[in-house]
Amino acid sequence: MAEQLSTGKCDSPLLQAFVDNRSILVKIAARITGCRSRAEDVVQDAFFRLSAAPQITSSFKAQLSYLFQIVRNLAIDHYRKQAMELRYSGSEEEGMNVVIQNASPEATHINLATLEHIADALEELPKRTRYAFEMYRLHGVPQKDIAKELGVSPTLVNFMIRDALIHCRKSSRLG
């Protein structure tokens, strides 16, 4: 297939230079990535970038230099991405042995009971205080927006949220 590409003519002199020197570009990328298959991917990415790039009218030597630099930069980016992925990933077998904190039935029961206590505590609050707390803590609505909606000052909203939080903490300790 590479021979088929090199015998065809491209619209752009830069793309034609790319097609004519494809095997050299793959070798350059392979030296950086350490893998011919990944190098092919890098060269393909370079081709797509070049085909979308504006026409460059410069000497043949400058075009080749530009092609080599693009492939080199893409190969380095690909290598860095691969190195980062290897640093933060593990094998599938490692993932099977990960211990999930608080995954025991007892911990799940305790967590659900705590949530029930907090829900009960929220029900004990005045409606406006509960609304301000839920909008701020659960839905991320800014306090100034809650204040506008309730027709109160942002300072009062801040105090309502604080009071609700204190009430929830007290009731979760008692439960």
Rank of each mutant, 00 (worst) to 15 (best):
A46M: 08
G34F: 07
K61T: 14
N21E: 06
A75L: 06
L64A: 01
F48K: 00
A75V: 06
I76P: 01
I70E: 00
A30T: 12
A17E: 06
Y66T: 03
A46C: 09
K61S: 15
S58W: 05
A62G: 07
S23H: 10
A17T: 10
A46E: 09
A75G: 05
E40H: 13
L25I: 09
R72F: 13
H78A: 15
N73P: 04
S65F: 02
A52H: 13
N73R: 10
Q55R: 13
F68S: 09
V71D: 01
F68I: 09
Q69N: 13
Q69M: 11
R38C: 10
A62I: 14
S58P: 03
I32T: 11
V43P: 07
K61M: 03
A30K: 00
A75T: 05
L50K: 01
S51E: 14
K27S: 15
S23E: 15
V71A: 05
V71E: 00
F18W: 11
V19Y: 12
V43T: 11
A52K: 12
V42Q: 01
I76S: 03
V19W: 12
F47N: 01
E40W: 11
G34L: 00
V43G: 07
R22Y: 15
T33W: 07
D77L: 09
A39H: 03
H78C: 14
F48G: 01
N21F: 11
Q55T: 11
F60V: 15
F60I: 12
A17Y: 00
L50S: 07
T33P: 03
Y66W: 04
D41N: 09
I24H: 07
